[in-house]
Amino acid sequence: MATRKKVLLKVIILGDSSVGKTSLMNQYVNKRFSNQYKATIGADFLTKEVVVDDRVVTMQIWDTAGQERFQSLGVAFYRGADCCVLVFDTTAPNTFKNLDSWRDEFLIQASPRNPEHFPFVVLGNKVDLENRAVSTKRAQQWCQSKNDIPYFETSAKEGINVDIAFQTIAKNALAQESDEGIDSAFSPSLTLGSSSDSNNRPNSSDCSC
């Protein structure tokens, strides 16, 4: 039995510009929505602690920071993702068509160990708007054809389905996480900065009892 570790899940959100990626994150984490559209500024990543199957999980949701606008997301963005959320705008058919290329792009860049079973979740956003152009059925069919990707219709503005969608994202990301054995809780890679700095000084002269 593997030792339980404190889990940090990295979730990345992909999709065309202005489908509402940042708004979905903000609605989920901060319960806030701003109607005024502008290209994402200040959106980096947000963290939220969630409880999944009795476990406290820290979910880190990474925004594209606008770098998707001219297809210029670097490979560094994709590193170590535990789940990939694909977002389209239910009123803009092109954003739905592009899901294919976003999914392919993710699989190429992130090159996950097990591409067939990597957890994706698809969100059809802006269902609060009248001018719907992508039917639920069409979206569901696409998701089924890609190894049954879970599909949710959301409204970041009204907060519709946002919580349940992210709860599923956390659950699937966690299920994906393999029982890597006892060692994985303290991975050998280092994140710089305050938290890991302090507990990693073998030669410090403090009390040695």
Partner: peptide, 16 residues
């Protein structure tokens, strides 16, 4: 034995 492994892990993180 699982407990021993747990100790090994924690002592790897902080051997003191």
């Amino acid at each position: 034995n699982r407990e021993v492994s747990l100790c090994t892990l924690y002592l790897k993180k902080d051997e003191r």
